[in-house]
Design a protein around this nucleic acid. Structure first.
Lengths: 263, 263
DNA sequence: CATCAATACTTGTTAATACATGTTGTTCTT
DNA sequence: AAGAACAACATGTATTAACAAGTATTGATG
């Protein structure tokens, strides 16, 4: 096995292992080659192998047992991290077919409350996009998104049926979303929401309110999404590790929307 | 500096450093002694010191710069961890005075939906506790808590004005909460909720639904808490680290209730 | 005075080596 | 057949050694 120059060997080895695990060459709970075998394979010292394995261990990608070996962790679902997902991904995970209808695609003057969130001047132009989101053809959510004209101009009404805003900005224009600030609350459906979501007026809706930022704490868009309360619940799990009973800090294991079935 | 036997030196050294940092002997952004200095101080090899520092680095308690040294991290607020807090703590952080009125403290037969959540048999006795929660004297939330009789008998109506259930079980009876599963949704206020929270009927409320577990995945209690939507918003922030732009996984930085002021 | 080179410090990488400790299966004994 | 002892192999701990590479200061040079 050849190693490049210029990059630390332990880094290359842990990257190689990470890749093998991610692509399924080493499966969950499978035993990895022993330290000595790996050392021989890469022609490095055992210390270097251990350095590589330590990285993976601290990321909880593998775990190790003295006398037994190193193994691929099973709960690869979350390493204290949660995924920032968009609507389509969430739906796909839930096994639902995601579609959306664009109901409004206009340029408006930013009111004060919006300007503050997007860190722009009041009255500046912003693009507003209103969409109904469907899961298996049924309305699940309604959202309004506001983008500064700078970003809004990059979007095109037609693209939005297939791709998400997240997707387009990140993949087509290399504007990554590096931070998201969510707010959760409840609100009752007004006439428009009731009509679009096919529910009666004043039904309570679950509202997620989000500002997405790109590099340098720069807001990209502000989004308000109203979920049909009978269709989706957000769930999150916190777990305190067995060792550390002292603090009440816990890593978040999951934060996922759960789509309810029709019953 | 003396090291004990039986415990790995690198563990003792990283524990010592962790303690020094936590108790403020080394302050945020302060430079730690160099690896060689530490090696001399503890009379161990530099490799052992590096092993100790690596632990702290992977926990993001310190960071290190080649050529410069090792420094205490500043953002000790959250290391991918979020705190599992109870109502009183949340209120205290927000600078509000937390009080509660116990409205119901009864023993009931567990209906099917509750039995499932608490992993007990349908019809088994559970203790139900309904409380109104106040912040600075104003009603903020209403919650119902159900505990299997095993845990419920440990509680006493009078204790619950001051202490939280969380508190009593963990501190008085050493039953730690090691896991919490939260569900968030919206619901409209029924007559009782409207009366207790001093709002009009059918106002949307923000509902947090929680199962708390102790060691061994054993449910301790199930709680439904209705927050007044005009008083509380839950906020959370996700951040993607600068290096790792590949995955869309982000550590959760905060998940906190925000109490709105009267306006 | 500004610039560059030397140097003294820092952390980073890696090897070679030794022994400790936990796990498992084999083999010898009873 | 059951149990004890052992060997083989796994990871864990720790040392000594050397060199690489980044940072900051110092001092000589133009």
């Amino acid at each position: 096995m050849m190693l490049k120059e210029g990059i630390p060997r332990h880094t290359q080895i842990s990257e190689w292992l990470r890749d093998q695990i991610e692509t399924g060459k080493f499966k969950a709970e499978e035993k990895l080659p022993s330290e000595n075998e790996l050392a021989k394979k890469f022609d490095v010292s055992r210390v270097t192998i251990r350095r590589a394995l330590q990285s993976l261990e601290s990321e909880e990608i593998i775990y190790r047992c003295q006398g037994l070996g190193s193994f691929v962790s099973d709960d690869r679902t979350s390493h204290n991290l949660i995924q920032l997902t968009d609507f389509n991904e969430d739906m796909k995970k839930a096994g639902l077919d995601a579609t959306s209808d664009v109901r409004r695609f206009v340029s408006v003057d930013a009111p004060a409350w919006l300007a503050k969130r997007l860190r722009i001047e009041e009255g500046n132009k912003v693009v507003q996009i209103d969409r109904v989101r469907y899961g298996n053809g049924e309305p699940i959510a309604f959202d309004s998104t506001w983008l500064p004209i700078l970003y809004g101009q990059l979007l095109n009404k037609n693209d939005l049926s297939d791709a998400t805003i997240f997707d387009i900005l990140e993949n087509q224009y290399e504007i990554p979303v590096v931070k998201g600030c969510y707010r959760m609350s409840a609100e009752s459906a007004d006439a428009e929401l009731a009509k679009e979501l096919n529910i009666t007026e004043n039904t309570p809706l679950f509202l997620i309110d989000r500002i997405s930022y790109t590099i340098g704490e720069k807001p990209i868009y502000y989004q308000k999404r109203y979920y049909r309360n009978d269709k989706v619940i957000y769930e999150m799990t916190l777990e305190r590790s067995a060792e550390d009973k002292s603090s009440s800090e816990m890593p978040l294991k999951e934060f996922v929307p759960i789509f309810k079935s029709n019953k």
